[in-house]
Design a protein around this nucleic acid. Structure first.
Length: 643
DNA sequence: CACGCATGCGCCCTCTGCTGGCACTCA
DNA sequence: ATGAGTGCCAGCAGAGGGCGCATGCGTG
């Protein structure tokens, strides 16, 4: 089993022998020879003829030879008694049996051993014999193939022949050799004579078996990227990987500017244009373009959904990325303390401030100095003050009328332009796009999602006139200059893309320069929480925190409470104490809401029962209702979610 | 010539993460 | 009634694992 310990950025990999947990049985790919493979240009279909004189193939040969040379060196090291990779083969149970790894059962008598094969592979570029005598080069008159042996050249010349005398009895194909025909016929008959010694898999050819054994059992990965250390079984996979470094994307979409590094991604992308949605939900019949979208969707039908509890507050997210954003947004310590606008008390993060705001519940402190007006929010007061000042900053984009307050403008739009297109840039965009898209019903797709998806692409490629339209809402990333339609999306983009991909504990404190000791950085109020395990939510958070600690390799000893965060801890205590204000905390309500959804309880439930598809209800709600109507967990496990 | 093996190309799958917008809550 | 905030979910691309099949070539 290959255990990936890397992130995407590093792509470092650790490969562990699945057959034995002992360290000495690890197949240490770190000692695998590093080969450098230059990215190749897209080739026409079909295996190209190996041409020793061509540059591309010389690279292949060089790569192969380097591997072979390393193998030879390893053999020498064994003789010197060093503990190198090859010696590990001889002491490792797996590697002891490496000789039999490629033992093809009945064919074992003729099967060669792996080490023998590699060491016996000749140096193909050499024109000097083992005895040092120079050998005469024989050259193919059709290509640049050269060899020193006449019979090899004669056989090679047959490869230029189009004659295929061996015809398949089951299809129209024909082959040059009987062995080719035999292998092909086996694919018709389902005959797989090459059985794996380690598992029940069988294969048509020996090469497939070898590759399988390397993938599944020996984890031998001879092809290594020298830039990042990624190693793989197949050279073609290494080439594909190298494209991630070079950015080469040779497969262009004929319908848009998208280019793909491989054919599969292009094919998958083309579904965007064709509308093909091959993956259908067996519960609600909704269709998806990707299998994993369906898989994620299936979770919405399940009673037990994955949850990612926040370690800082009782919030629970359904997705890891949402949790990361939540923590970054709510619990990131601000560079400047956040002051309560009702009592001027300072708080280190938004969550603390919000929790503190609860203590002012019922208070109205946004009072007008000129009249008796008072507002709940500063924005409402600001709008009110426009009336005293006589300013009307809010203009109707339909008729040009000016208003002092947002509420007044909205009321005007509702009254006067209700049936007209909403004069916002966002909806204008969606409307423009909606004209161009196919019928969502015909495409078995919810209209909103269809529009959202199209708008996503629209924003991604927008330029020129469209950008001008968005200029007044310029939510542009200052780092990558990408345009977004809202501040929230820009925020989330920043957290997701430009913030370090560390655990949220780290994010929280690395964002400030206040804590210098890295150990302190990993702290949160776990100690405080341990002293007051009074609520289940605390236990859940603690478990999650422990999980994070395990993932980060942090020991309990390293988990100390940073005194600088004590200002937050009392608030957490209040939450976990389960006091009477519990239900008043918004994030608690989030949980409560999620819990209600999990139980199939949702507000306005009765309104939905007479649903006939054009009621504007969300797909999510319909799914919940479906489940509720059945009043039990759906009987399916098509994806093995239940184990 | 048969065999073993390396390799290329294609295909499918899974996991992961980012993004847009809906739906809901609250002030 | 409204706007802001935010959880949830669908859309979709990046990356890699694994296998099917075909072809080329060294070796016995």
């Amino acid at each position: 089993m290959a255990t990936r310990t890397s992130t995407r950025s590093t792509k470092a990999v650790k490969f562990v022998d699945s057959t034995n947990d002992d360290d000495e049985h690890e197949f240490d790919t770190s000692e695998a020879p590093i080969i450098k493979v230059e990215p190749k240009k897209a080739k026409p279909r079909g295996r190209p003829r190996r041409n020793r004189s061509s540059n591309d193939d010389d690279e292949e040969w060089d790569a192969g030879n380097e591997h072979i040379e390393n193998d030879d060196e390893e053999d020498e090291e064994v003789s010197e008694g060093d503990e190198d990779v090859t010696k590990k083969f001889k002491t490792n149970p797996v590697n002891r049996s490496i000789d039999s790894v490629y033992d093809f059962g009945e064919m074992s008598g003729t099967a060669r051993k792996w080490t023998k094969t590699t060491t016996q592979t000749p140096q193909r570029n050499s024109t000097v014999s083992d005895t040092g005598k120079s050998m005469e080069k024989l050259m193919c008159s059709y290509c640049n193939y050269t060899t020193t042996k006449k019979y090899l050249l004669q056989r090679h010349l047959k490869s230029h022949s189009t004659e295929r005398p061996h015809k398949c009895a089951y299809c129209d194909r024909s082959f040059k050799t009987t062995i080719q025909l035999t292998n092909h016929v086996n694919t018709h008959l389902g005959v797989k004579p090459f059985q794996c010694k380690f598992c029940s898999f069988s294969f048509t050819t020996s090469g497939e078996l070898i590759r399988h054994v390397r993938y599944k059992h020996t984890l031998e990965k001879p092809h290594r990227c020298e830039e990042c250390g990624y190693a793989t079984v197949e050279l073609s996979k290494l080439r594909r990987h190298i494209r991630t470094h070079t950015g080469e994307k040779p497969y262009a979409c004929p319908h848009c500017s998208y280019c793909s590094p491989d054919t599969f991604k292009l094919k998958r992308h083309l579904r965007v244009h064709t509308g093909e949605r091959p993956y259908q939900c067996t519960i609600c019949n909704f269709r998806f373009t990707q299998s994993n979208s369906l898989k994620a969707h299936m979770l919405t039908h399940q009673a037990e959904k994955p949850s990612f509890p926040c370690s800082y507050c009782p919030s629970v997210m359904a997705r890891k990325s949402d949790l990361r954003y939540h923590i970054g947004k709510q619990h990131a310590r601000q560079s400047e303390p956040l002051s309560c606008n009702k009592c001027d008390e300072d708080f280190p993060d938004k969550y603390s401030l919000r929790m503190h705001g609860k203590t002012h519940k019922g208070q109205t402190i946004h009072s007008c100095n000129h009249c008796e007006f008072s507002a709940n929010t500063s924005q409402q007061l600001e709008d009110h003050m426009n009336k005293h000042r006589g300013t009307r900053p809010f203009q109707c984009s339909e008729c040009g009328l000016m208003f002092a307050a947002r509420a007044d403008l909205r009321a005007h739009v509702t009254r006067t332009h209700r049936n007209a297109a909403t004069p916002t840039t966002t909806t204008t965009t969606a409307a423009t796009l909606s004209a161009a898209m196919n019928s969502p019903i015909a495409m078995n797709r919810r209209p909103q999602r269809r529009a959202a998806s199209l708008q996503h692409r629209y924003i991604g490629v927008s330029s020129g006139a469209e950008d001008e339209e968005h200029q007044e809402d310029d939510y542009r990333c200052p780092i990558c200059h990408r345009q977004f339609t809202s501040a929230r999306l820009l925020d989330r983009h920043t957290y997701a893309v430009h913030e370090p991909k560390q655990d949220s504990y780290d994010n929280r404190d690395y964002q400030t320069n206040e804590i210098e000791d890295e150990d302190d950085v990993r702290d949160y109020a776990d100690d405080e929480l341990e002293e007051k395990p009074k609520a289940n939510i605390n236990i859940k958070n603690e478990m999650h925190a422990n999980q994070l600690k395990l993932e980060d390799g942090i020991t309990d000893d390293e988990q100390g409470l940073d005194e600088e965060e004590l200002d937050l801890a009392p608030i957490v205590e209040d939450i976990i104490d389960g006091d009477d204000d519990f239900e008043q905390i918004p994030t608690i309500k989030s949980i409560s809401s999620a819990g209600r959804k999990q139980l199939g309880i949702i507000r306005k439930f009765d309104e939905i029962e007479n649903d006939d598809d054009d009621d504007g209800l969300s797909h999510k709600r319909k799914c919940i209702i479906n489940r509720d109507e059945h009043d039990e967990k759906p009987d399916f496990d098509v994806f093995g979610f239940n184990g």
